[in-house]
């Protein structure tokens, strides 16, 4: 009953209520309130994720598992960032502010955590940002090797994929612009940058739209399955 029926009831009730609210003007704001509820619970989910991270890495450390030394890095980084973020530690011009501990300017508590000069923002700028953008930039190399395999024009479909990608890539570089600068204005659609724009706005748009319509139908049918209690995988395997 508590483990299975109540979650099914909560889901069906909340889902139906939000769909019905669209058709009843006094309930129009319900969607906004529930979105905010969702955001608030999501913050608790972040705390849950943080708690789980600490639990896993402490466990690794305690059992001296492989690479346990790196768990220390994760834990130190986590608690350091958490402390400076929650306490809003900042030091501007040699003046320290830790408003939650009563150090420095108490009005600093109202400042955004991402204010320039806060340690939280500095850590974002000099640790998270380089790591994040380099991780994504690294994909450029893997994409290059993947595209070598994928872009061999083995058949008509692969050739189309290759041509579209090539024109888009070339169309966004000065080299692409220089390459077809000689094409007269009355044939300007054949200039590579214009061709890239045309591909993005016409066949690409058509393909994206077909995919979006498919996604829309998929989401609607999955929502219905959830609300009607047909889809229950989110409850996990314990069928108690």
């Amino acid at each position: 009953m508590f483990k299975r029926r109540i979650p099914l009831f909560i889901l069906a009730f909340v889902g139906t209520l939000l769909i019905v609210s669209v058709f009843i003007p006094p309930m129009e704001n319900l969607g906004e309130d529930f979105t905010l509820f969702f955001d608030i619970i999501a913050v608790f989910a972040f705390f849950l994720g943080g708690g789980n991270l600490v639990r896993i890495h402490f466990g690794k450390l305690r059992r001296r598992k492989k690479d346990w030394g790196f768990s220390i890095v994760t834990l130190v980084a986590f608690f350091f960032m958490l402390t400076i973020g929650l306490l809003k530690v900042s030091s501007v011009g040699g003046v320290w502010n830790i408003p939650l501990l009563g150090i420095g300017d108490p009005a600093a508590i109202a400042a955004s955590p991402t204010t320039e000069g806060s340690w939280f923002q500095e850590t974002f700028n000099y640790v998270i940002n380089p790591l994040q953008s380099t991780m994504y930039a690294l994909l450029a190399f893997f994409v290059a090797s993947a595209s070598y395999r994928a872009f061999r024009a083995k058949n008509r479909e692969a050739t189309l994929l290759l041509l579209a990608a090539f024109i888009i890539l070339l169309g966004r570089t000065p080299f692409g612009m220089e390459l077809t600068r000689w094409v007269p204005e009355s044939f300007s659609v054949l200039q590579i940058p214009n061709m890239a724009i045309w591909i993005m706005n016409s066949p690409n748009l058509a393909g994206q739209r077909a995919i979006l319509i498919g996604i829309g139908l998929g989401v609607v049918s999955m929502s219905l399955r959830l609300i009607l209690g047909i889809e229950r995988s989110y409850l996990g395997e314990d069928r108690g």
Partner: peptide
């Protein structure tokens, strides 16, 4: 490992 620890705390604080 640094990225994992710092990012988790970043989103919690935000």
């Amino acid at each position: 490992h640094l990225f994992v620890g710092v990012s988790a705390a970043f989103w919690m604080c935000m």
